[in-house]
Design a protein around this nucleic acid. Sequence first.
DNA 1: TACGAATATAACTATATGGTTATATCCTAG
DNA 2: CTAGGATATAACCATATAGTTATATTCGTA
Lengths: 107, 107
Amino acid sequence: MPRTMTPALLDLVADRFKALADPARLRLLNALRDGERTVSELVEATDLTQANTSKHLALLHTLGFVKRRREASWTYYALGDRDVLRLCDLMCGRIEAEVERRARMLE
Amino acid sequence: MPRTMTPALLDLVADRFKALADPARLRLLNALRDGERTVSELVEATDLTQANTSKHLALLHTLGFVKRRREASWTYYALGDRDVLRLCDLMCGRIEAEVERRARMLE
DNA sequence: TACGAATATAACTATATGGTTATATCCTAG
DNA sequence: CTAGGATATAACCATATAGTTATATTCGTA
């Protein structure tokens, strides 16, 4: 975080964290782990409705978390870059640490 | 992100991203960059109301993003660990990259 | 051209949550 | 033990948004 966090920059950062702050969107990103998928494949993989899936994907795309490629009548989505998973991994690491800390307190 | 993202784990991750998905809380974390601060100092630094500040700090504390220490009638808050800023830096890095990409497209 | 599959969007509702005001709690001084 | 400062909590309202249903769009094909 740069020292000079203007209110505008703070809003941008907050918006991006907000995009990751939803279980449905995290499921979608996780489903893209192994490569690109069509919307229908993502619907299948995540158990979300088609409309809901499209809406979430649109948001993730706007913020660059996923990229897309049209081919015939399908849209293939893929992770935007490696940062996405790195962010999630960092968060998971925190949770693991927390769980361990709690386990140790119960010993 | 581990391969097996159970719904419960997804909720935990989402909750943590949600904590960072608010400009007011980001301001508080940023204000803690250089070390611990009392609540009143944070109120002063962020222009939030006292009640609002306390509420946000309570949430950040629950999730381990800040730690606190009571001394006399003051509560000193500090960053929970280095991950917090690392997460924000990653996000800022994404934004910078995005801005640059856009600038290049206008050339 | 008309149809159907794949995807996107619009309108709506219900819920979650950020900010405020008011009050409670905790601590120290006198 | 009372007063006052520092912090936390409660109750409330207004807004934002996730999910749904319905419809629009886009594209290949009969």
